[in-house]
Structures are given as structure tokens and as C-alpha cells.
Nucleic acid binder design. Structure first.
Lengths: 196, 196, 196, 196
DNA sequence: GATGAATGAGCATTCATTCAT
DNA sequence: TATGAATGAATGCTCATTCAT
């Protein structure tokens, strides 16, 4: 007999892997319970619906990431090197969990359509907030002379897209990216651009 | 009575809008034929399956974009300005059609799961090729001293992600980005990075 | 191939018999389509839900009965015999269809619980209206001196119950009541009571 | 800790109210145990099944009523007044418990379909017996010259229906009938009919 | 070619009941 | 005795696809 929490975790874990592998719509309750080795009704003891598992996964993913993010501190005596260091830290914290769990990464970039809206909306809101926050940071950076003059909105969107691209790559089996290299490279790109 | 091609095009167009708005799984054959004002069986006169319409849309989208892309020419007498100009042109050509048709943009970044593999695979292959091509270009650029030393694979992935982010933003009603600003901004980011 | 209306009627008829025999909750869609010899989805071409068939049956039953009822005319020169004749006519019209279709009778007295409320409510409203109408008729009859002084509400309820009892008996295979005798007997009971 | 019998009674009482309010099929075990504040498995300690509780309720209801009924005594020196008095007494005894417990009344007239046959059959048998007994009484009454010549079967069915109608009205919140008036009225109807 | 009726495989969900403690 | 976790059979319903005209 399993502890109650373990059971829930097992279902969650199986669902995560299946959703990551076959997508939300490609995964049936039958698949999940077979993988988790529980009876049909048992699934519903722990989750009210298929959508509910997905919600839980999204929530957990967001929680995992968001809790790690720290605001970038700036001020009088904050130089370029300092900002880049903070950037590196945030990137490491954000990407770390995704690197160690490709399924989480997959869920994170999944654009699941037509699930009970809430779930997708949560992710959308997250990315939207990320963009807004970056936008404001860029504005502040410009006023401090740390950031070159740019269209902050477009740039923010581009950076978030860049990160999503990385996460998508992580979630793909064959890319095999190295965590530290990624962090360094992203930082460098942001810092220097690509073309000399 | 409609000409045969018009009928097909009508179905395709309606399907595109519906897929863009509600997603592949959120759109039923019933939705499509209602919108296109054709009978159920008529749909199957023109397309073998729901997946087939999606395939056709993907194909058309890819064709539209790919045909516009030109290889970036480099050589002895190619300077930084020249390369950036070519980059701008390619970006304009690639993003142009997507800007004028947000539904196309949506399809383009859609990560539809569990459609008969082929469709998703085509998009994946496209993005994969894009990454590979960029990777090679970066390598070449490095050897020519035009590109700073970097991990070409990661950087390529990041850039493609950046573009995807932009396209995703285009496909979203509320972002309202300006075409030329976007092209300039992306170019600038690639050229200079963000942090001074 | 069946005409469209025939198909619907066939389903309706089978559903009626099954509902009458096993009750609403004791009848599954599987039962209905097996009896009607149609495919599962075909059922849903004609009815939106299991409850919808029941609604249709109730509606049809009520329509059948209600359309036959005529208001009892009274006035200066209306004597006891005349009123009783009108009563007989109404009884005949109301009970006739139920006598010729025991399943209809069964549906008519069925007190189906927890179907999408509407259906049950319709029947309840019908019986409620019947009671109210009878109540008013009794009141009028009293003021005309045709009806003995009585509690019109209780009496109305009792009469409607009497009728329901008859209909229930009709719907039972083994009672084998004679239509004309029933009409006469009810009229006589109303007219004379039972105990001398 | 509750005494064993109290537990059982509590479950029974809650079930009765729920069945009366939402019907048998509209009431789940979950509803019952929540209302009775007992654990799921505890329910099955006291009752073997959902149907069993219903059986018990029917049994108790029938017991309550049947035990009160007294045979109507007739004989040489029994006049009309005497018979009516006995009728009144029986009615009072039968309707009394139902008036004081509308839920009991509801159960009593419930025509629950597709419960494990036994329960419904018991009620059916009860009503059948009632009809038969009335039928015989009417026959006897006729031979004694107390009852007018009538079709005893139909009349018996009608009278039982009348009573059922009253009980149904009792079980409905909004009717608010007065016990004594009902008894008087029924007696009067039986004695005199309605139309003068 | 054009149509709409017909189809069945598939799915999420419910619920009375049993098991292990 | 009392419990709550676990269960699987059953059910209503959907939807892409095919058939007959």
C-alpha cells in the first residue's frame, strides 16, 4: 500500500511524462492509469478531471520557476559586471529545474490548445508578465545607461522568445545542451550581440 | 456553383482561421464546414482527413516563407554593414507574410500535438534546418571574423527562438507590433546585444 | 433506407416502450439503440441527449391529452345531466389515447426523479394546472348550486388522484380495464358517491 | 460513539430525507454518508446496499401504516353512519403518520423504477392488496345494500388513486393541507359524491 | 461533383461496492 | 466496529469518417 501522497505524485509524474511525450490531447486517462498502475476510479480520487492534472502540472512548474527568480538590483554603484552576474544567477535558477527535467520543460513550452482555458491562460499570463517585467527592466537599464537605446517591448519579446527557444530545445531529446554553456552563451548574447 | 479550386481554397481559409483561433483540437470538422458553407461529405472530396487540411496549411505556410529566404552571401569584400543588410532583407521577407496574416503566424508557431505526426514533423524539420543553417552561417561568420566566438549551436537555437517569439507575438491580437521596428530591433540585437 | 422522420419516430417509439417497461434510469442508450436498430451516433443525430427523448415523449403525451380537453360549459340553462355529459366527453377524450397506448399511460404517471428537471416539471405543472382548473370549476359549480359545498382544493386533488390511479392501472398489464366502464364509473362516483 | 441502533437510524433518517427530496436515483451513497456523517464503509456495516436502505424505508413505512388499519366491521345492525365513522377512523390512522412526516409520504407514493425489484414490488403488492380489500368491501357493502351498485374493481382503483393523490399532495411542500379537513372531505366524497 | 444521413470506435466520468487496517 | 482508499463496470456522449443517392 502506498502513502496517499505518493499515489498522487505517481499519477502526476506519469501524466507529466505522457503529456510531454504525446501531448495533452494525445494522452488518454487510460494511458495515464495504465502507466501509473492505478484503477480508473483511483485517478478520480486524486484529480477531478484530466484537465485538473494538467493544471496541477502547470502550477507546479510555474511555482518551481517563479520561486527561484530574484529581481535584478540596480543602483548607483551597480556596474555592468554586477548586472551580468545577477542575470547569470537568474538564468541558472530558472533553467536549472528545466534542465534536470525535460518533461517539465516540455510542459513549460507546450501551447496546449482547448484545454479548459485556465491552464493555458496561466502560462500565457506567466509569459506576459515575464515580458512586462523585462520591458520595465530594460527601460530602467536605459535610464541608468546600462542598456543601449532600444524598443523595450520588442526586445523583451525577443528575449523571452530566446529563452523559450532554449527551453524547447531542452525538452527535445536530441539536443543535449550543456547547462553552463547555455547560461554563458545567453548572457554573452545579451551582453554583446552576435555580430562583431 | 464554385470553381473547384475556389472551393478548396475556401475550406483551407476557413480551416486556417479556425485552427488559429481555437487550435487544431479545438476545431471540429463541423466547425470548418459550417464556416466554409459546404456539406460534410464535400469536405472529404477536397481533403482526405482533418489532418490533411492541417498539412496543406503547414505546407503552404512553409512554402510562403522558405521561398523568400536567400542565402547570406559572404566573401572577401563583404563587410559588417553588408551582412547586416542581407540579414534585414531576409528578416523582412520571412516576417512580411506573417505580419500580414496573423493566422498564418499562429499556424507557424503552433506546436500541435498528436496530429498525424507528419505535419508537426515538417515544422520541426523546418525549424531544425533553420537552426542548422544558422549554425553553419555562424561558424562561417566566425571563421571570417564577422561573428564573435560563440557556441554556434546554442546561439542558433537562441536566435530561432527569438524569431519564434516574435512570430508568436504577431499571432496574438493584442501585441500590435510594427513590422519595420521589429526588423530593425532584431538586427540591432543581433549586432550589438542589449547591455552596453 | 428509412425516411428521416420514420427514423426519429422509431427511436421515439422504442424509447417509449423501454422507459415504460424499465423506467428512465433503467433504460440505457445502449438499450434504446439496440431496440431501434440504429447506431450509437445515429441516436444523437435525432436527439441531443437521453433526457431529450424523454422530453419529447412527455411533450407528445401532454399534447395528445391537452389538445382533447374542452372547458366545461355552464350557464343558466345547464342542468346536471348536461354537466355530466360534458364530463363524460372530456374523460373519454383524455383517457382514450392512454387506453390505446399503455406505454403512454405509464409515461404519463411516471414520476421520474432527477432527469434534467424540465421534463418532470412539465408533468408537475400539468397536474398542477389540472388541479387548479378543477378547483375553479368546483367553485363555480358551487356558486351555481350544481356542486355540493366542499373544500374545493382537497376535492380537486382527490379527483386528479383518482384519475391518476386509473391511468396507473391502465399502464399495468394485468388490470385490463374496459374503457367505457371506466368512464361511466368515474362519472357515477363523482355524481353519486359510493355509499348510499 | 453512538449506539449501534442510533447509527442505523441516523443513516435511515438521512436516506429518507434525501430520497424524498432528490429521489432514489438522484441520491448517491456519498450524499447519504455525508448527511449522516459516517464513513463510506460504515454505511455497508449497517446496510448491504443502497437498495437495502430503500427496502428498509419501504418496510418501515408499510409497517407504520398497515399496523394502524382496522377491518371495517359490518353486520346486521351496522348503519351508514357507523360505516362512515369506521372509514373516518381508518383514514385518520392511515394518513396521520404521513401528515406528520412528509418524507414518509413521499416515499410512500414514490414510483421508483429500476431499484432491485423487491422494493417496488412491495409497494405494488401493498396497493394491490388495498385495492383487492376495498373491492371486497365494496362487494360486501353492495350485498348489504350500503353501497350503490357499481363496478367494484374500478371504484376500488379510483379510491386508492384518490388516496394516493392526497398523499402525494402531502409530500409536496406547498400544498399545506389540513389533516382533519382532508379526512372529512374524503369521507364526504365517498358518501355523497360531488355533484348534487 | 455534391450531399446529408449513418456510423462505431473512443473517451471522460460516475458510483456502488469492497479491501486492508 | 469503523474507516477511507481503491476499484472496475457501466454510461452518456463526441467526432472524424464513410455510404448511398
Amino acid at each position: 500500500m502506498m502513502a496517499k501522497e505518493d499515489r498522487q505524485r505517481a499519477i502526476l509524474e506519469c501524466a507529466k511524462q505522457l503529456f510531454a511525450a504525446r501531448g495533452y490531447h494525445g494522452t488518454s486517462i487510460a494511458d495515464i492509469i495504465k502507466e501509473a498502475a492505478v484503477a480508473r476510479a483511483t485517478f478520480y480520487v486524486y484529480f477531478n478531471s484530466k484537465a485538473a492534472v494538467f493544471h496541477a502540472l502547470i502550477d507546479s512548474a510555474l511555482e518551481t520557476i517563479v520561486s527561484k527568480l530574484k529581481p535584478v538590483l540596480t543602483g548607483a554603484n551597480v556596474d555592468r559586471e554586477n548586472v551580468l552576474r545577477q542575470l547569470r544567477v537568474n538564468l541558472s535558477h530558472a533553467l536549472g529545474p528545466l534542465f534536470s527535467d525535460p518533461c517539465l520543460a516540455k510542459i513549460f513550452v507546450s501551447e496546449v490548445e482547448s484545454v479548459d482555458d485556465d491552464a493555458t491562460k496561466k502560462l500565457k499570463v506567466f509569459y506576459g508578465n515575464l515580458v512586462t517585467w523585462l520591458e520595465e527592466s530594460l527601460e530602467e537599464g536605459m535610464s541608468l545607461g546600462i542598456v543601449r537605446k532600444c524598443n523595450s517591448r520588442i526586445t523583451a519579446i525577443a528575449i523571452v522568445g530566446m529563452l523559450r527557444g532554449i527551453v524547447l530545445a531542452i525538452s527535445d531529446d536530441n539536443h543535449q545542451l550543456d547547462f553552463h554553456e547555455v547560461v554563458e552563451e545567453i548572457t554573452a548574447n545579451v551582453a554583446q550581440g552576435i555580430i562583431i
